[in-house]
Nucleic acid binder design. Structure first.
Lengths: 186, 186
DNA sequence: AAATTCCTTTGACATAGGTCAAATAATGGG
DNA sequence: CCCATTATTTGACCTATGTCAAAGGAATTT
């Protein structure tokens, strides 16, 4: 999904606005397995995924990686609360394959929020959408069996489910990889 | 928490703006156990809780009430996705004790969002805060033991934890009331 | 204040999914 | 293409929490 098209699809920006907004983002390519943010750092950048995918994860007490979220094409990617509150990130952010991103700093996006009322609207709509998705995951995790949670994963991230290591998905779904392996087989 | 003070604490509105914004809300008192929204209805109103508390819940396959969220003093209360997307609500919304609310319709708040850039900013900030809280709950539900989840509840809703029926809290935390009862005892 | 309904506790037992350990299979660097 | 990692599968066993059933308590209603 092209970044400009994405923006237009959310709020009816004019061509001039779009051009100005996009000019504040920097296009960059990041190679597979590269880490964008570490646990404890303040996340300085918000990314839009134009191609590729990423995930956020943290290390639990026993040092195991727990996937917190997947970010596919056409989504904003960041350690959201760290970026917006400028507090230390609870999560690592990494790219799972070669990925093309549009990136912007906190101060730059705040300027855009201040400059364009419509940009603020977009921020609200994106946050609300994310909130809805988070609620869906919560329902899946809280009330569904391991097998149903995997079905939720397939529905929510059809493009991602078959392209990342099984362990990443298992921890995202709150189960062990052994359990997920048995589910996929059965 | 007074509604006007709450608004000022989020974004620096002028007195005139505050007056205009608050004038679009309607103050109302709702009695204990009253239902504000039913599952399947489109949620037409957003509420701000000035006094009292409420919860959202849904009925699962076996007809059991599952608490989805608690709304305490100083929070916006609604079936969020139903209200903002104007889609049928997945949840019931009810008041758990006599409660004082400021209410506003979708079209009225959209007008305020359109009229005041700052109002849009407030919307984004409130949505982001809610998102953060949702992530916290998700982490609790996904990775913590029943006892730790109860500790999370005490931290997140200290004012509510001791004032609502144990069964409401148990379902919110994704455990049975028997388990919660044993935890509280031990 | 008796009756009814709702809420909480307790006990016995069942099970989904976890843990640990080891065997395969797949992947990527030299 | 081979070796060293890294990822996945499989099996045996374990445990936290669920289910079911029933008994006490509290709180409303008449």
């Amino acid at each position: 999904m092209n970044f400009t098209d994405f923006l237009s699809s959310i709020v009816p920006f004019t061509d001039g606005e779009l051009k100005d907004i996009v000019s504040h983002f920097k296009k960059e390519t990041v190679l597979k397995n590269q880490t964008l943010v570490r646990q404890g750092e303040i996340c300085k950048t918000l990314y839009f995924v134009e191609k590729g995918m990423g995930r956020s994860y943290y290390l639990n007490e026993s040092g195991k990686e727990i996937t917190q979220w997947f970010f596919g094409i056409g989504k904003f990617m960041s350690s959201v609360d760290s970026f917006f509150q400028q507090t230390p990130s609870l999560y690592y952010l990494e790219v799972l394959e070669d990925t093309e991103l549009y990136s912007i700093s906190k101060s730059d996006i705040d300027q855009l929020f201040a400059k364009y009322h419509k940009m603020e609207t977009m921020g609200r709509l994106v946050a609300t959408e994310m909130l809805t998705k988070m609620v869906n995951k919560l329902n899946a995790i809280q009330f569904q069996t391991a097998r149903e949670r995997y079905d939720y994963m397939l529905a929510e991230f059809p493009d991602i489910a078959y392209q990342v290591p099984l362990g990443h998905i298992a921890s995202y779904l709150g189960m062990t990889q052994e359990t997920l392996s048995r589910i996929r087989k059965g």
